[in-house]
């Protein structure tokens, strides 16, 4: 039981972070805190992806010399991609004898990080605008104001 947890400690961390993040998003009434929670949640996923790219005993996937010749493998990048795509993660044996870690998840997660940053930026910008218009960033207060607006049906 415990050994399973320790062997897969990275999953444990991912799960803890994921749940913490989600909990903060749902439980907090403060718009900024919600965004913090969202970021934690997203970060946990980044960790998940990065950790699955790790191959035990694997080297960093950096090719020192271009040992492939001819038109079959035109560039190092092709080799890497080929290695990543053809063999399931967790055992990325390259054509050569050197064992590399799988770089693809890292590449993917770079994109996801960019997306996460963009989302966070928009979220923060929205929070600023909400603060300007409603005078608060507490969800309860905003709901209260909207509720009253709905009842009266007039613009303030």
């Amino acid at each position: 039981m415990f050994s399973a947890i320790f062997e897969n400690f990275h999953y444990t961390i991912v799960i803890i972070l994921m749940m913490t993040g989600l909990y903060v998003v749902f439980s907090s009434g403060n718009l900024i805190k919600k965004l913090v929670g969202l970021s934690v949640f997203q970060t946990s996923v980044f960790l998940l992806y990065i950790s699955i790219g790790k191959v035990r005993g694997g080297q960093p996937p950096i090719l020192v010399d271009d040992h492939s010749s001819g038109g079959e493998h035109a560039s190092a990048a092709t080799n890497l991609l080929a290695g990543a795509a053809e063999v399931p993660a967790g055992g990325a044996h390259h054509a050569s004898d050197v064992l590399y870690s799988n770089p693809l998840p890292h590449v993917l997660i770079l994109t996801a990080i960019v997306v996460g940053v963009a989302t966070l930026a928009i979220g923060l910008a929205l929070t600023v605008r909400i603060r300007e218009v409603y005078g608060s960033i507490e969800e309860d207060v905003i709901n209260e104001i909207d509720y009253r607006y709905n009842l009266e049906g007039t613009d303030s």
Binding site: V25, V45, L48, I52, A85, P88, I122, I130
Partner: peptide
């Protein structure tokens, strides 16, 4: 504004769930 914020939070959670699913799928099939 509030609607967009709510949409952002839920939309991001949805997209993140989706990407978690993709991660598992990648683990399974490579």
């Amino acid at each position: 504004l509030a609607a967009a914020y709510r949409y952002l939070i839920l939309g991001s959670i949805g997209a993140t769930f989706f990407v978690i699913g993709l991660g598992f799928l990648y683990m399974e099939t490579g």
